[in-house]
């Protein structure tokens, strides 16, 4: 391997290592707080809450992968994103608390909680 290729590979490893470290392990408890206090808080006002246990792990995984919120009117990622958190943080303490959390991290946290709380998850969860 030439020196240039070695250095490039090293750079790629550092890059991947940092990215991997930053998203090492999802925090399902943080995902739970966000789901209940941001997602559910809004859903209760606008049509009803959705219990994590109302879907299977596969259904939640597919839902998050499709990234279609409100039947495709907008995206799930928008509601996990910093822009949305900034827009509601004045009235929502969870959005305020997690205002600076990386979007991907929070998305992973949410996914971890929904997998755990799904109908066939380790701990099927209600809205409470």
């Amino acid at each position: 391997m030439t020196t240039s290729k070695s250095l490039s590979a090293l750079a790629a490893l550092v890059l991947l290592g940092a990215a991997g470290a930053a998203h090492a392990e999802a925090d399902w408890k943080r995902g739970r707080v966000y789901y209940r206090m941001v997602c559910t808080a809004c859903h209760v006002e606008k049509g009803g809450s959705i219990a994590p246990s109302s879907k299977t792990i596969a259904e939640w995984t597919a839902y998050l992968a499709a990234d279609k919120h409100a039947k495709g009117k907008d995206t799930v990622k928008f509601y996990v994103g910093k822009k949305y958190r900034d827009s509601v943080k004045a009235s929502n303490k969870a959005a305020e608390k997690y205002a600076d959390v990386a979007e991907q991290d929070l998305h992973d946290d949410l996914k971890a909680f929904l997998s755990k709380g799904a109908k066939d998850g380790e701990s099927p969860a209600s809205c409470n």
């Binding site: 240039s4 750079a11 790629a12 550092v14 890059l15 290592g17 990215a19």
Partner: peptide
């Protein structure tokens, strides 16, 4: 090469 190293280190630090 050097640009990619600087970028990678910068990303890691960030």
């Amino acid at each position: 090469i050097w640009l990619s190293i600087v970028f990678a280190v910068g990303f890691a630090l960030s």
